[in-house]
Write a protein that binds this DNA or RNA. Structure first.
Length: 567
RNA sequence: GGGCCUGUAGUGUAGUGGAUAGCACAUAAGCCUCCGGAGCUUAUAUCCCGGGUUCAAGUCCCGGCAGGCCCGCCA
């Protein structure tokens, strides 16, 4: 709704400016506490026209012509600002559209195909609390883009032939594999032991190199051993992802690009640019003209490919299938992703859009799978689930255990996802058990509670024969401040979705979802609904509660968080 | 040593160069005997430091300081 309003405002103001001979310009539209939308265009024009911005604003306001069917109610110049207000029709239309469009409300305004790659952690152990920042950002972005209207295919790029996997494969034949544990956890156990062993006996590293050469040359037996190792880890990782409502459409194996010949083809293409040279036996690409001091190694001295080389082939392939290719990567990939983009550019291939998030560390330092220093996602979910159960039990002691367990799982995962997604990706964070288990912090449970509250109000009204969803209602009686504020908040849905989709910033949407719940609670606090005296007030307010239920459910779905009807 | 990111109340965070720096936790004081109290209201900030650009800087530029990440044959 707000997107249409903004569009109309843009047209009206540009028309007015043209009629004054100012031409059109960036209107500097901004949300404002003084209006539904404000324009600072007068500031811009002031320096250009060498006139007082206040006078310019006044002239523009006077020149505005509002069409009959507009959502714009008024344009007012306040000092140098142009304050625009939405009219009653805008509010009424918002309410009726939410109820007619339900889960499609506020979305579907984009089109195109996107490949989103996220998580892609090495299959050498379980996901830890750092990896899931990638998963949550990637999955939330996917949901945002899908809701905005894109066709999104999600990829998990599986490193099934790198050095680390060679170590895992080697480890499986040297150490006992504990089958009583979740398979990815057992993989980490042997991987950690193998690394310690290799550190103590550096001469054994040659065995790893040998494995890598064998797998690169397509040796059947070695490939099978690698596949087995990778299979154990990936199975466990998938299970963990599923717990947090994350599912990838495709798991793409790196080795496929070596076997298909795509890797050697792309190496040839890079060579053809004349940018390559042999440095100490390795093949490197000179990217100085792209601003990279150091050249990029794309082939080892022994002729085997590197992660980067295979990644180039993978990106070439992705670029052929979608208009937009998005990668969610940790901050450690900043340099390498820049070099990857430059190399793709050098051979005339489309470059991915890279979303970088900063690291999650532990109070005692950074995490490391190799050294066994990490907190697994599974452990976090278990602890959070237990704590959530305690909280549910405290509030709904009369409910059966089954109910408490279900709600605890939904609330626990929701709390974890929300805590991660609400923070801007460029901030590094420190994992803290006390905070992770603190449900008093307003986050997902607050939004879920608001949704459950709306559901419960409607259920109660229905039970008392006061509510029938099919009743036609008159939204224009919703005139209380808290009602109007809440309707406007819901109308913002498309605008926030659009901004987070354009800027690839999921935290903007997360913050909006909380504000939405906040706004609903304020409405409910100040206005009687079931106990309203007039029937038309009661019906319209119940319809507004129904809107809250719909929009809150949509927001939670977009965040990948469950929306229980009771909790 | 070089590059990139971050630095906002006790803590955690939001904030496209513009109108009173928004929110939560913790703390304190309240709320129609409340239609779900996991709710609502109120109180608490020299925006790391120093310069600069601008009519206007938390936001842009330069220099510090602190933390994170990276700097070829790992991924």
């Amino acid at each position: 709704m707000f997107l249409e309003f903004k569009q109309q405002v843009t047209l009206i103001l540009n028309d007015a400016m043209e009629s004054l001979g100012y031409g059109t310009d960036d209107l500097n539209l901004e949300p404002s506490q003084h209006a539904d939308i404000a324009s600072r265009v007068a500031f811009r024009l002031a320096s250009k026209l060498k006139q007082n911005p206040k006078d310019i604003a006044e002239r523009i306001a006077a020149a505005v012509v509002i069409p009959d069917d507009s959502y714009v109610d008024s344009v007012e110049a306040v000092g140098p600002y142009l304050n625009l207000r939405a009219n009653r029709r805008y509010l009424d239309e918002t309410v009726s559209r939410i109820r007619s469009e339900t889960d499609g409300f506020g979305g579907g305004f984009c089109e195109g195909r996107i490949i989103m790659e996220h998580t892609s952690a090495n299959p050498n152990g379980p996901l830890h609390v750092g990896h899931i920042r990638n998963s949550v950002i990637g999955d939330t972005l996917t949901r945002i883009l899908k809701r905005a209207g894109y066709d999104v295919d999600t990829h998990y790029y599986v490193n099934d032939m790198g050095r680390q996997i060679a170590i895992v494969s080697w480890a499986l034949s040297h150490f006992e594999f504990d089958t009583s544990k979740k398979s990815d956890h057992s993989i980490a156990d042997v991987y950690i032991k193998a690394n310690a062993e290799l550190e103590a006996h550096p001469e054994k590293v040659a065995e790893i190199d040998r494995l890598m050469q064998l797998v690169e040359s397509g040796d059947e037996e070695t490939m099978e051993r690698f596949d087995k190792a990778v299979g154990f880890a990936v199975a466990g990782i998938k299970e963990t992802l599923l717990k947090m409502n994350v599912a990838h459409d495709t798991f793409v194996n790196e080795s496929g690009f070596v076997r298909s010949g795509a890797v050697s083809r792309i190496v040839d293409e890079i060579k053809a640019t004349g940018r390559t040279e042999i440095d100490n036996g390795a093949l490197v690409v000179d990217l100085l003209s792209y601003g990279f001091e150091k050249s990029l190694v794309i082939q080892r001295t022994d002729g085997t490919s590197l992660y980067t080389t295979r990644d180039l082939a993978y990106h070439e392939w992705k670029g052929e299938q979608a208009e937009r290719v998005i990668d969610v990567l940790g901050a450690d990939h900043k340099l390498i992703s820049g070099q990857l983009k430059a190399t793709l550019n050098a051979i005339g291939k489309p470059e991915p859009e890279v979303v970088i998030f900063e690291f999650v560390s532990l109070p005692e330092g950074s995490m490391s799978t190799r050294r066994g220093k990490f907190i697994t996602a599974d452990e976090l979910f278990e602890q959070v689930g237990e704590q959530a159960f305690v909280e549910v039990d405290k509030r709904r002691p009369e409910m059966p255990d089954e109910f408490k367990k279900d709600v605890a799982a939904t609330v626990g995962i929701g709390a974890v996802r929300y805590d991660i997604v609400k923070v801007s990706p460029e901030k590094s964070t420190v994992f803290n058990w006390k905070e992770a288990l603190d449900f008093e912090k307003q986050g997902a449970p607050f939004i879920q509670y608001s949704h459950a509250r709306a559901c419960s109000i409607l259920a109660k009204a229905k039970e008392e024969g006061l509510w029938n969803p099919a009743t036609t209602i008159d939204p224009s009686v919703l005139v209380e401040d808290s009602e109007v504020t809440f309707i406007k908040k819901m109308a913002q849905f498309d605008n926030v979705l659009d901004q987070s989709a354009r800027e690839l910033k999921p935290h903007i949407f997360a913050i909006y979802a909380r504000e939405l719940a906040d706004s609903f609670n304020q409405f409910y606090r100040f206005v009687p609904v079931i106990s309203a005296e007039e029937e038309s007030d009661r019906n319209s307010r119940l319809a507004l509660v129904d809107c809250a239920r719909i929009v809150l459910a949509n927001a939670l779905e977009t965040l990948g968080i469950g929306a229980p009807e009771s909790m």
